[in-house]
Amino acid sequence: MVFFSNSPAMRLLLLLLILFSITSCWTRNSRPRFIDPHVHVWGNKPVYAARTEAKTISYLDSALPVIVPGNIYAKGNFIYQLEIGKGIHVIDKTNPAQAERIGFITVNGSSQISIKDNYLYTNNYDDLVVIDISNSNSVSVVKRVAGAFPEGASNYFYIEPIESGYYECPRYDSVVVAWVKDSIWTSCSKN
């Protein structure tokens, strides 16, 4: 590690290396920006919610703003839109000219959706979950296939810290509720 901190030239090289590694793995889906090599620095560390919260699926009977929009899906009088990593917006389009968001299904770590009859399929991090949406003001999980998408785990989406610089890549199966400054191993970086 001394190698990298010795001279301005080496620091520049490290910066270029980091920038290259950022752009090289950047895809349309904003995958985590893993940084190599690992260095010990002062940076942002994730604060996680209780483990149970990550796997709790619930319905909010009111509209939420769209922050990180994802895939859309249409069925019957409704449109569904992913809020990447957070859940699914429900839009009532019965009267298209007055269409609006009416509710939100909280599914942490979600990125995909499909529906058959009254059953909605999505991913809760790397689990496949089946959600009964027959009731207009509540949802219930009727089946969970744990670890159904082991590869997809690395595609987990999360909100980066507000400030740029190094941060610790969050665990893919946990909810990040805040970021705190701490001594961390560099694993992710934000421009």
Partner: peptide
Amino acid sequence: TGKAGSLSKF
């Protein structure tokens, strides 16, 4: 079933 957008993985 409904209809998905073309960017879907399901």
